[in-house]
Design a protein around this nucleic acid. Structure first.
Length: 486
RNA sequence: GGCGCUAUCGUCUAAGGGUUAGGACGGAGCCCUCUCAAGGCUCAAAUAGGGGUUCGAAUCCCCUUAGCGCUACCA
């Protein structure tokens, strides 16, 4: 079994394309098949190297890999020979009509009545006439001669959409070769699918109606077409199809990468758009996805990627990334986090990172969150904060000072382990006739620089005696400065 | 305009003739608790509309509506 993913390098890797690639990959891995990456670059006008690179960039980030790789631009001979073969069988003809020059937007919306199907004079042109004009160097496009004197229907079975049928008489005589000699998408794609022995074509639903044309080409060339499976499209909250121009960077996979997503969490999220394992599972490992993936589980209706102007990330994707982060082994997560910490300019080694990671693991949803959650473990100096933050419930600056002084006293003796710190500080609270919360808050703020932070005893243990006492002393000094000035 | 496809909570989805229409995200509330998270529990929230077929329809058929796709040398 052989599947292919065939992006054209006219933009970056789009979220919908990424999902198509993922589904192809999953289908192949589930069935022990081969994944082929084929760059569909026959449109020389619009292809760019930058775009090609960004597609590789996106694909590499997904970290799934592929088995074989081709570029259509290196296979033009095959495409032309295939077109010639169809022409030789009399199933294609030359059309010397100059390229349609009307405004295409208007032509499709304003045109009344029947759609264009073919240019009768060209379809009926005698072979002698055709050869003569071609020999004279007159440019032409090669069109498929769609059978239309019968009531025959073109049919195929789609693994997602079921049986499909369309009257041949409703299919226009599409182009195989352009007047510049380059193959069209239809020609190149089918010729390559045949030559690369593709068994299953899994692609976006925007190709569903093109498939009738492809079936005609496959029949003309080989008599038999591969299997088809079309995927529902990914659309924007406004119902429009995702486009760079209209929706901005949300449509690029690099948006998620740059936001600090785990590649696998992103893959997991994309899988849930248009496919379901049918058993309510959502967080799934790569192997679980491979095992569960079946084309029968693919939906038929388009799925909305739920983003907003203020937030380009789908909330469910954010949640799912958090789930993967929360359940990841500590060492693995620490390894993911360390580069972010170092890029921020902080001193950190693997050992320190592994100590800090368990304290922040369930408090982050994307990797860069480490910068705002764990800063207090890495920064030498705490950012300045309002000393009034040190005041506990039902207390005042005096209470804060009292707590901090007591903390300084007991912490200079206590062992810096979780259990020892907890019992020491709880006893101190009792001695001061304060509730535990009133005792802990001033210390937390003194040591973390803010009220929301990881649990106090673990935090103190990781910070160590020296840093903890230094920060408590600084807080105390700040409080005393205010009270004496007042 | 023609042809094709689709239609379940705001979003992702389950249920493919018989269920109080299930789960998840997001939202609200409660619990847990040294703060924040995480976790647990609860609540609000859907079968586009109309006709059939059937004892019985979200599910099958038809119509309407809406959305999407393709539509003369983009892929």
């Amino acid at each position: 079994m052989r599947v292919r993913f065939a992006p054209s390098p006219t933009g970056y890797l789009h979220i919908g394309s990424a999902r198509t690639f993922i589904f192809n990959w999953l289908y192949a891995r589930h069935n022990g098949g081969t994944v082929i990456l084929r760059i569909d670059d026959t449109d020389v006008e619009r292809n760019t190297e930058v775009s090609l690179n960004s597609i590789y960039e996106g694909l590499n980030w997904l970290d799934l890999g592929w088995d074989e790789q081709y570029r259509q631009s290196e296979r033009l001979d095959l495409h032309r020979r295939s077109a010639e073969a169809i022409f030789a069988k009399g199933m294609a003809y030359r059309d010397f009509t100059p390229a349609y020059s009307g405004d295409e937007q208007e032509s499709t919306t304003q045109r009344e009545g029947a759609a264009w199907l073919f240019n009768a004079d060209m379809r009926e042109l005698s072979r002698e006439q055709s050869d003569r004009r071609a020999a004279a160097g007159e440019p032409f496009v090669l069109r498929f001669r769609v059978p239309r004197d019968t009531d025959r229907a073109v049919t195929f079975h789609d693994h997602v959409f079921g049986p499909q049928s369309k009257l041949a008489a409703d299919i226009e005589d599409f182009a195989l070769l352009r007047s510049n000699g380059m193959p069209t998408y239809h020609m190149a794609s089918c010729a390559d699918d045949l030559d690369l022995r593709i068994t299953h074509i899994i692609r976006g639903q925007d190709h569903l109606t093109n498939t009738f044309k492809h079936v005609l080409i496959f029949e003309a060339l080989a008599g038999e077409a591969p299997q088809f499976a079309h995927l529902p499209l990914l659309i924007a909250p406004d119902g429009a199809k995702l486009s760079k121009r209209k929706h901005g960077p949300v449509v690029s996979v690099t948006t998620y990468r740059d936001a600090g997503f785990l590649a696998h969490a992103y893959v997991n999220f994309l899988c849930l758009l248009g496919w379901s394992p049918k058993d309510n599972r959502e967080q799934m490992s790569r192997q679980e996805l491979i095992d569960a993936f079946k084309l029968e589980g693919v939906n038929r209706s388009n799925a909305v990627v739920n983003f907003a102007d203020e937030d380009p990330i789908d909330p469910k994707a954010m949640w799912l990334n958090g789930q993967h982060l929360h359940t990841m082994p500590v060492d693995e997560l620490a390894a993911h986090l360390l580069p972010y910490v170092r890029n921020a300019g902080w001193q950190a080694d693997e050992a320190k990172m592994r100590q800090v990671t368990p304290l922040i693991q369930e408090r982050i949803r994307v990797l860069p969150d480490v910068l705002t959650v764990a800063d207090l473990f890495f920064a030498d100096e705490l950012a300045p904060y309002d000393p009034n933050e040190l005041i506990p419930q039902k207390g005042d600056l005096g209470t804060a000072a009292q707590v901090l002084e007591k903390a300084r006293e007991v912490l200079s003796e206590a062992a810096f382990t979780h259990d020892s710190l907890e019992s020491t500080l709880r006893e101190a609270a009792v001695a001061l006739k304060l509730k535990p919360g009133q005792m802990f808050l001033p210390i937390r703020v003194a040591v973390c620089g803010r009220k929301t932070a990881p649990p106090l005893f673990e935090t103190l243990a990781v910070l160590g005696r020296e840093t903890s006492l230094k920060r408590i002393a600084q807080a105390l000094a700040n409080v005393q400065r205010i009270t004496t000035h007042a």
